[in-house]
Computed example of a mutant assay.
Amino acid sequence: MDAVRLFARHQQPLDPATQVPEETVCSRRYRPRQPHIYNDTEIGALLVATDTLSPLFTAAVWRTLIGLLAATGMRPGEACRIGVDDVDLDNAVIQILNTKFGKSRLVFLHPTTVTNLRHYLQVRLDHVPATTRACPMLLLNSRHTALDPNKLAVTFRKILAEAGITTIVGVRAPRLYDLRHTFAVATMLGWYDQDVDVQARLPLLSTWLGHVDPASTYWYLHAVPDLLAHAARRLETRDAAAGVQS
């Protein structure tokens, strides 16, 4: 039934009369949760909403955290474990060490991200005493110790509310982790708009995100309607061209 549902979802944008079997029919014990894909307006609202946090250093930390997640697609836990020495702004790169599955990787930064990180590092220097016992992590809490990834949800709920991003009844509330999903989806949509071979580039995105293999990244194709519609249109165009040639 998983295969039938997947095929039906691909077919539905081409033929709206296609029926997709309910998830309750022969459902699996585990199903990935539907991610919330933030649009540009929502991401901007989240960044603005961090200004309401206090003290001011906390606001700067959260603005940097949300910006990093949106711009790089890294996991929140990875961002919390970045050390100041892991950030090389001269070469616009961050090294992420010993993350999920024991993997390490490099994440390259957009010039605007570099600019914002330089500003944050100056704010951090002004607020955190430069002693030999100072915490070496990049992102710190109000006590100047490392952010705890297990305690991010409470503050993020406040930011969501301030940004006016409400939860639809019966739908899971947007998460900080969904910024990672948003990055992946935006990247793939960009490839579709550029008319490049998304299938061939998936391994590149998988490496960037730190996935074990492209199969983990491929999940986005059937989890997000916009990507599904792009894939369906690509398939329809290819099949039409093949029909003309034959």
Score class of each variant (00 low, 15 high):
L6G: 03
L6F: 08
L6C: 06
F7V: 15
F7W: 10
A8I: 12
H10T: 10
Q11G: 08
P13R: 10
P13S: 12
L14K: 10
L14F: 10
A17W: 05
Q19E: 11
Q19V: 15
P21Y: 06
P21F: 04
P21M: 04
P21E: 03
E22G: 15
T24C: 09
T24W: 09
T24Y: 07
T24F: 09
T24K: 14
V25C: 04
V25L: 14
S27M: 11
R28Y: 13
R28Q: 14
R29I: 04
Y30E: 09
Y30D: 06
R31A: 07
R31T: 14
P32Y: 03
R33Y: 10
Q34D: 08
P35G: 01
H36A: 00
H36Q: 00
H36M: 00
I37L: 01
Y38R: 01
Y38C: 00
D40A: 03
D40M: 01
T41E: 01
T41N: 01
E42T: 00
I43Y: 01
G44M: 01
G44Y: 04
L46Y: 01
L46Q: 02
L46D: 00
L46K: 07
L47W: 03
L47V: 11
V48C: 04
A49V: 06
A49T: 12
T50H: 09
D51G: 08
T52A: 15
L53V: 02
P55V: 03
L56R: 13
L56D: 12
T58H: 05
T58N: 05
V61L: 02
W62C: 01
R63H: 14
R63F: 07
T64N: 05
L65K: 09
I66K: 06
A70G: 02
T72F: 03
T72A: 04
G73R: 01
P76I: 08
G77I: 11
G77S: 11
G77L: 07
G77F: 11
G77Y: 11
A79T: 12
A79D: 05
R81S: 14
R81I: 09
I82N: 05
I82P: 00
I82E: 02
G83M: 11
V84C: 13
D85Q: 13
D85G: 07
V87C: 05
V87T: 15
V87S: 07
D88R: 13
L89G: 10
L89P: 02
L89E: 08
D90Y: 12
D90G: 13
D90R: 14
A92E: 09
V93W: 10
I94S: 09
Q95T: 15
Q95E: 15
I96P: 07
L97K: 15
L97A: 14
N98P: 05
N98S: 14
N98K: 15
T99P: 02
T99C: 15
F101C: 08
F101A: 11
G102A: 10
G102F: 08
G102L: 11
K103Q: 14
K103S: 10
K103I: 08
S104Y: 10
S104P: 05
L106S: 14
L106H: 15
F108R: 13
F108L: 12
F108N: 10
L109F: 03
L109K: 06
H110E: 11
H110M: 06
P111L: 12
P111A: 12
T112V: 14
T113H: 05
T113S: 09
T113Q: 07
T115M: 12
T115N: 13
H119C: 08
